[in-house]
């Protein structure tokens, strides 16, 4: 269970202070897929950064299964990211000189998974996203966009995180492939009982989520 209360984040810019996230409150249950929609500059990415502990909030709380995360130190945030959060990016962000399997194993390495289990776990995760067998040995450049995003999803779920943050996961894909990716995320969320937050501006993607939230000028509201 993810619980966010009174979360605020502001930045100083040339034009003065920008309040990117304002008093954000929401909850998301295990296995639930929540879509956050909003225009460019609405505060989506900032919110995702705060939830992924890539940035520290000015105030407010982020609680994951009863553990307060908002005020962890840098080491604690790194540890949390490696074990409790998985990221899926719009442009996949796979390491180009590593194979698909090695990319997945990277997340297991950072999460300190037992070395002897990493191979099997990576293969299982790739099989889960439909990239079993020989494709696991291919480098990202030898995979299609959809396949790369599948690898990214396998990597994100590999260390059994409690939270997946997907930033425009279909943004670089055609509609049909994007549809499959969303289905994959949704299935993985329910199967692995992982909370998935999908940031998107694509209404069709958002409609497939269990709940939809809209962010505008840093203010998050639930869409009925």
């Amino acid at each position: 269970m993810l619980s966010v209360e009174n979360l605020n984040k502001s930045f100083k810019s040339d034009g003065g202070e920008v309040h990117a996230v304002r008093d954000v409150n929401f909850r998301a249950g295990d296995g639930e897929m929540v879509a956050i929609v909003g225009a460019s500059g609405s505060g989506k990415s900032t919110l995702l950064s705060l939830l992924g502990l890539l940035d520290a909030p000015d105030d407010g709380s982020i609680e994951m299964n009863g553990t307060q995360l908002a005020h962890l130190d840098a080491q604690g945030r790194t540890r949390y990211r490696s074990r409790q959060v998985g990221f899926v990016f719009q442009s996949f962000n796979l390491i180009p000189n590593l194979s698909a399997k090695e990319n997945v194993k990277l997340a297991l390495e950072f999460a300190d998974w037992p070395k002897e289990d990493r191979d099997a776990r990576a293969e299982a995760m790739l099989a889960m996203v439909g990239l079993g067998g020989e494709k696991g040995n291919r480098r990202p450049s030898k995979l299609s966009g959809g396949e790369q995003q599948r690898v990214a999803i396998a990597r994100a779920f590999a260390a059994q995180p409690q939270l997946i943050l997907a930033d425009e996961p279909t943004g670089s894909l055609d509609r049909a492939t994007g549809q499959k990716i969303v289905e994959l995320l949704r299935n993985a969320a329910s199967t692995l009982k992982t909370t998935v937050l999908v940031v998107t501006h694509d209404e069709k993607v958002a409609q497939q989520a269990d709940r939809r939230l809209e962010i505008e000028d840093g203010v998050l509201t639930e869409i009925a």
Binding site: L54, T78, R81, S82, V85, F87, L106, A107, F110
Partner: peptide, 8 residues
């Protein structure tokens, strides 16, 4: 990306 994935 590496840091986001939890690399120190």
């Amino acid at each position: 990306v590496l840091k986001a994935l939890g690399a120190t």
